[in-house]
Amino acid sequence: MADQNLRELERVERLRRFSSMTTMYLTARTGSGVHGLLPLYPTPRSALPEETVARLFQEATDPAWRSMMLIGSDATAPNSLVCTPGTAAALVEEAVAISVRHSPDLVCFPHLSEAQHAAIRPCLATDPEFSGEREEAYFDLRYDSFDEYVMSLPRRRRSHIRRERRLFQESRITLRELPPAEVVHLEPYLTGVESRYGVPPRPELQRLYLRTTAQAMGDRGTALVAFADDRPIAFTTLWDLGSVWRTRVWGCDDTHPLVREAAAYFNLMYYEPIVRAAAADARRLYVGTGTIEAKTRRGAGVRRLRSIGWTPDHSRSRGRSTATSLNSEV
């Protein structure tokens, strides 16, 4: 697993520790080294907003459940299961056994890619009772300039996107690249956006999120900050993972008229990242799971992330597989 991915796991662990939640790691080892890694997140219901649960399971779950074991993802990000071929069965079997021993009301593999789902599903002894799907949007970067990107779109959409770009470029907004650690003080902008989506305001947690995100990205992260009259009014962060880039955060001063008038959101979250990632020869730019319709209208594709879960049978706890040596670390 790449160092940046390990730093991302550390980011999640630090955020959970802030809320007094533990994190465990299950590793698959043989004499030749580590062949798989899977984080496990024991999570009380009180720590999961109802909209998060709704995204996991589009089918009704028992309303009385109080705890869940999340395997591979904390329910906010794509699943981080990684393993070599032939290791999945042992890794999944032991993860489920550990989960049952912790006596949660539900066990869940959140936000699996199609490949992860295909690897995990045959390894489960229990058929999932609950399932859900979520879409993550991305742009495949087949162009070398913004004009080429626009020309790749259906004709009826081009003028609107050119207008959004022109509004931004002709406004009095200036765009600056900063290290992500330098935008932690813009936490109120992030908190404001989250509050509009029903997330209870927790400024200290959001500041920690921005700090840990900056640390996870390291020198591969960049903050794009929009200034009007030398005052920041909106920002996002970009994570350069080589052939793949990601946008990570959106925050803005919703009271400033230029945020809307200059189409700041579309430029900072889509158009500027597209231009920069393409110039760096990246092949794909991921732009998150929200506002999917707005993204697909601008040429994004989507990939399906699947979540599966069930009520565990606490009278059964499967033994360790002999296929590989497994080591769980807390």
Rank of each mutant, 00 (worst) to 15 (best):
M1Y: 03
A2L: 13
L6C: 06
L6Q: 08
L9S: 07
V12G: 07
R16A: 07
R17K: 14
S19G: 08
S20E: 13
T22H: 06
T22P: 07
T23G: 02
M24A: 14
A28L: 14
T30G: 11
S32H: 14
G33L: 06
V34D: 12
H35T: 11
T43K: 06
P44S: 11
R45Y: 09
S46C: 08
T52H: 01
E59Y: 05
A60L: 08
D62Y: 01
A64E: 15
R66P: 00
R66S: 08
S67L: 01
S67R: 14
T76W: 13
S80R: 09
T84M: 09
G86L: 08
L91K: 10
L91E: 10
V92E: 04
E93Q: 14
E94Q: 15
V96N: 03
I98K: 03
S99T: 02
V100Q: 14
R101Y: 02
L112P: 00
S113F: 04
H117P: 00
I120Q: 06
T126R: 15
E129L: 13
F130E: 01
E133V: 11
E136N: 09
A137P: 00
L141N: 03
R142G: 15
R142H: 14
Y149L: 05
V150Y: 05
M151P: 00
R158H: 04
R158S: 03
S159I: 08
R165M: 10
R165Y: 10
R166V: 01
L167R: 15
R172A: 08
P180W: 00
A181L: 10
E182N: 10
H185Y: 12
P188Q: 02
L190A: 10
L190R: 09
T191D: 15
G192W: 06
R196T: 10
G198W: 03
V199T: 13
V199D: 01
P203N: 02
R207H: 02
L210W: 02
R211H: 09
T212C: 11
T213K: 12
A214K: 07
Q215E: 14
Q215M: 10
Q215T: 09
A216T: 02
A216Y: 04
D219W: 02
D219H: 11
T222V: 12
A223D: 00
D229N: 06
D230L: 01
D230S: 05
T236P: 02
L238T: 04
L238Y: 07
L241H: 13
S243F: 00
S243H: 14
R248D: 09
G251I: 04
G251R: 00
G251N: 03
C252W: 02
D253H: 06
D254W: 07
L258E: 12
E261A: 13
E261R: 15
A262T: 06
A263D: 10
N267P: 00
L268V: 07
I274K: 08
V275F: 01
R276V: 04
A280W: 05
R283L: 08
Y286T: 02
V287L: 03
T289W: 01
G290C: 00
G290Q: 12
T291M: 14
T291Q: 12
I292H: 04
I292R: 01
K295P: 04
T296D: 07
R297W: 08
R304C: 13
L305I: 00
D313G: 06
R316C: 10
G319A: 15
R320E: 13
S321Y: 04
T322S: 15
A323T: 13
L326E: 01
S328A: 14
S328G: 03
V330S: 11
